[in-house]
Design a protein around this nucleic acid. Sequence first.
DNA 1: TAAATTATTTGCATATTGCAACTATTGTAC
DNA 2: GTACAATAGTTGCAATATGCAAATAATTTA
Lengths: 149, 149
Amino acid sequence: MENARELFQIMTRRFGLLNKNCCSVGGCDISPVQSHILYEVDRQHHPSMQQVADILGADITTFSRQVQSLVRMNLIQKTMDPSDRRVFTLSLTTEGKYVATTIDQQMQAYLDEVFSYMSEEEHQMVLKSIRLMNEAMSKSGNCCRPIKG
Amino acid sequence: MENARELFQIMTRRFGLLNKNCCSVGGCDISPVQSHILYEVDRQHHPSMQQVADILGADITTFSRQVQSLVRMNLIQKTMDPSDRRVFTLSLTTEGKYVATTIDQQMQAYLDEVFSYMSEEEHQMVLKSIRLMNEAMSKSGNCCRPIKG
DNA sequence: TAAATTATTTGCATATTGCAACTATTGTAC
DNA sequence: GTACAATAGTTGCAATATGCAAATAATTTA
């Protein structure tokens, strides 16, 4: 494990696998893409489709269809914005909120287990480092663009 | 940005976008999946299909087809293992090696830019932290197994 | 030698993707 | 106000990607 790219490649792959295996809640399976959408809709305050698609770096047409399936699964609601009727605002249904929360808890539990293999100081250092990385990446114009912290 | 899951979610998403936008080398576009395969074949010493598929957490049938397309693109070679003729051993062609190296350099350059937004001590702390995380994740049995579930 | 196991490939049905073209609404120029 | 550009979102469509079940082929085990 030498260079930075190697370290990040391995870590993000592992986290990706975690995301992939993690998420079946009460019978229904959630794909990583869907999980990211639920996560981001939960985080934002009634974001528009376009906003979430941009944040996730997804093509709006693909995103539109993903949202359609989440609506069919009764996890997400689309509400027309009265002040601009082109815009649809996204929010979680009660069931969607439950699913998002459950996924979050599972992920958190997994991460807690990982942290159990290090000291408390190391744990804090890791969190601080990731915070630093997120800040730095958000400053970078060259890469990692379509995102905010 | 509160909890660990949030931090990791954002960071891995950013890194994923980086991976996604990064990689067209000399005309041919490399998908993130293909990039991961090239990366891993480069790292290992003549791994078998099964080995790489396991490491990447990919279904062997999907993986088999991905490899087929990389062979068609002349980036990867499949060699039958004479000691066990069921096994195919993977290696990069000269062109594949070039592509993998170029991607690696691009990613490294992006990361260097990101690191330029922090002090040298912070930079070192981040690398140390990721190293720690990778170690801890590899110890965890519950999650992040480079094996599918 | 027969049966079980392992590595890899194909069939098939489904899901995901992105570009181009479309509708509907809003903003701007004159 | 009308004409025209810009924006938000949806479909058509064709290319890919996915994963399960089943097949093939080689190896190991009983």
